[in-house]
């Protein structure tokens, strides 16, 4: 490497070394200081409390927390409890139906809306507005609509179908399905919005190329567009599953978990055992199981998301 002499001989003698002043050093800490409250929140209120709940689930706590540990007894009690098993089964039925139906309706509506529909903006607004409502409001409305003596069943009979029956709300076997109906009504528009955004993101030229290759419109959808929506399916499933596991207010407002405990869900079970029945230990154990459920869905998702992001770089 050659280095020709600069115009004037540089002086390498350093006159002064700038040490960061106190003010500078403080200024450097500002970013950390600014996020520290949130950091505290994350550490204490999210992770600390999660661990705390786990601790409670191994304790003898009833109305008040007590820190005598009894191993897995709360979990044994939990899984020995028929009501909890019903709640879990219900969550299975409700979760699967809710996710599948929402996906189906959401995708169908998105595809239909993507056909250059005239009043698209208006229709989209209509499909999505339930998402702005509280689950309590949704529950209240559907509770009334599904009530056999005043709602849809009566309406059907008044129309002349004397034997029309739609009494799922008060039937132990069917009540969980009413929760599905109301939940789908509330959330499917949201899935539609997700899919619609995904459809709009599909490269137009691919579709045109396929059409030039002679693919019919249905083929274009089933073979090209829908497969390219995989990531949307993925995040929609995550969101919906997450909503399902947390579901509490809707079932409470709609069926109150009843008749009996036939439409109970883990979230209701957890709340009632912890807060109204003074069985904090068992309640905590059920919360831990719910947390595990969310993690089981979330961790693979986050893992794949983070891996994709790393690949991007």
């Amino acid at each position: 490497m050659t280095q020709s002499p600069p115009l004037s001989e540089p002086t390498r003698a350093v006159r002064k070394v700038h040490k960061p002043s106190l003010g500078d050093r403080l200024a450097e800490q500002i970013p950390r200081l600014v996020v520290s409250p949130t950091m505290l929140i994350a550490v204490v209120f999210i992770y600390g409390f999660m661990i705390w709940t786990v601790v409670l689930s191994f304790s003898t706590s009833r109305i008040l927390p007590r820190y005598e540990f009894i191993g897995w007894q709360n979990y044994q009690r939990l899984f020995g409890n028929e009501r909890w098993m019903v709640a879990l089964t219900n969550l299975g039925i409700y979760g699967v139906l809710f996710v599948v139906i929402c996906l189906a309706i959401g995708l169908l509506l998105a595809i239909l809306l993507d056909q250059k529909i005239r009043a698209e903006g208006f229709l989209r607004t209509v499909y999505l507005y339930p998402m702005a409502l509280s689950f309590i409001v949704t529950g209240t409305v559907w509770k009334w609509l599904l009530n056999p003596s005043v709602g849809i069943q009566r309406f059907g009979r008044e129309l002349g179908f004397e034997n029309f029956r739609f009494d799922w709300l008060v039937s132990s076997d069917m009540s969980i399905y009413t929760v599905v109906i109301a939940a789908v009504w509330q959330s499917s528009g949201f899935v539609m919005a997700l899919f619609l955004a995904g459809l709009r993101g599909v490269d137009d030229s691919i579709i045109k190329a396929a059409q030039i290759d002679g693919a019919s419109r249905i083929t274009v959808y089933t073979r090209i567009i829908i497969p390219s929506l995989r990531p949307v399916f993925f995040s929609a499933i995550i969101m919906l599953a997450h909503i399902a596991i947390k579901s509490f207010d809707l079932a409470l407002a709609l069926t109150g978990g009843g008749p009996g405990y036939s439409s109970d869900l883990p979230a209701i079970f957890m709340y009632q055992f912890s807060f109204t029945r003074g069985q904090m230990g068992v309640g905590a154990a059920s919360a831990v199981i719910m947390l595990m459920g969310v993690m089981a869905i979330l961790i693979p998702y986050l893992y794949s998301e983070l891996r994709v992001k790393k690949d991007d770089r």
Binding site: T53, P65, K246, F248, M270, G283
Partner: peptide, 11 residues
Amino acid sequence: FLPFQAILLPQ
């Protein structure tokens, strides 16, 4: 994504 049930009791 936290299910709030998991922090309800400590909170």
